[in-house]
Design a protein around this nucleic acid. Structure first.
Lengths: 233, 233
DNA sequence: TCCTAACTGCCAAGAAGTTTGCAATTGACC
DNA sequence: GGTCAATTGCAAACTTCTTGGCAGTTAGGA
């Protein structure tokens, strides 16, 4: 197994591998390109395999019978999804949609099974990846239960933030944000106003400008109910 | 890797193993007994390792700084918890409390690492176990977002139900149920009343009697928003 | 440059859930 | 058999969030 336990942050499935393993994985997959907004997979697709994001980003979401969509996470390059379908006989659980020009490497379960013969250490990377995802999901579950909308929004903004001039920005409409924090657009707007009143963010057209990322982090940390899980020590 | 992908239901980590692997795992662990209500671990405990439930049940929950507790799941015999701490350098994420007389086999990370050398196939069992847990967590996340309290209650009752005479029973106080469905006691009471009005359950002292488990299942299925993930085919 | 679709901001009504409090019931222990 | 703590059932006031609607703003394509 992996001697040094891995970090909590997602998106390093590929980058943590030794070069040889990485190229073996890459060779086993088929590269498929998607345009912005293209559907990569839908919930229910029976497509067992691993999907590796090579370029671009992927929004994982689910839409119910009434058309209500909720976004679970937006994966970036180096992230993987679909691991569960490798080991469980279930279809894809979430819809995946390309955010921007996106390239995905698809490794079918059959190919992956063979790959494991030559790269047995790959299992440890998957174990760590699944553990990270599970950890994230459990935290989300708790957040959804306990945190008010403004807090969930702040946490989500932290994950979405990209450097921009002096500060940071999170791109996307308020409707998109609403789907990510599991709230309505109105509630999201109010939560944004709350953060804006606190001087933490400024709203723009399809964008939220974050003056000081650390200040936002502090704001979140001060208000957390559950003791955070510190990594390493 | 495992040739035949495994089932979605939890609690078969141990039972699915070949006899030899099972005894190797058992030999690697220390058996510890707990009385009803005893604390097995607390969120934040830095105790990397795998905990296997040999006997009894374990309630996994988290309590915030205001004393509000929410139950994530109640594990039964054959289930494991703590897998994440084997591969990630994080403390235990949830509190674990014994429900009834309980026996836990604790395998430290050090022991487990050595065990993997002699039982490499163990990794595949862990992969499946983590995949199942993740799948469950994602479904929960969606349920919490979309389903009204009565639905969440019904689904939880299905997992808690034990055979009892003609029908089934779920034991526990309404406060306990409330913690499991992430709602207040009042809301839980109302949801129970709703199910009772529909003729599906009957409330008792620290118990909910389920007349016809299949009828309750149908009630849930009819009202689900998300298309269920059918296993196998 | 204009037009239009998408988006933000906001209001009002109402649904769902929470908190607080209290009376009646139940079961366990002395 | 009596006492008591835990539990259920319920009501009222309140908070949070949702739904639906509308006016003003923004960006991008014809």
């Amino acid at each position: 197994m992996t001697e040094t336990p891995l970090s909590l942050s997602l998106g390093q499935f590929i980058s943590r591998m030794p070069a040889e393993m990485r190229s073996a994985v890459q060779a086993a997959g088929t590269l498929i390109r998607y345009r912005d907004g293209a559907v990569i997979q839908q919930r229910g697709d029976r497509k067992p395999g691993l999907s590796i994001i090579v370029e671009g980003r992927v929004r994982m979401s689910a839409t119910d019978s009434e058309g209500e969509r909720s976004t679970y996470i937006v994966h970036g390059p180096g992230n993987v999804f679909g691991e569960m379908t490798l080991f469980l006989d279930i279809p894809r659980t979430l819809d995946a949609v390309a955010v921007g020009e996106t390239a995905i490497r698809e490794v079918s379960r059959a190919r992956f099974t063979r790959l494991l013969d030559t790269q047995p250490e790959l299992r440890d990377h998957l174990l760590a990846s699944l553990a990270r995802q599970l950890s994230l999901a459990l935290e989300r579950l708790d957040d959804q239960r306990r945190l008010p909308a403004a807090m969930r929004l702040a946490k989500t903004l932290l994950t979405l933030a990209e450097p921009d001039g002096e500060g940071h920005v999170a791109h996307g409409s308020q409707s998109g944000l609403a789907e990510a924090i599991a709230a309505s657009r109105v509630t999201t707007g109010k939560a944004l106003a709350e953060l804006a009143d606190a001087g933490l963010v400024r709203t723009g057209y399809r964008a939220v400008h974050i003056r000081d990322l650390d200040a936002l982090k502090d704001w979140v940390a001060e208000r957390s109910f559950l003791t955070p899980l510190t990594e390493g020590d």
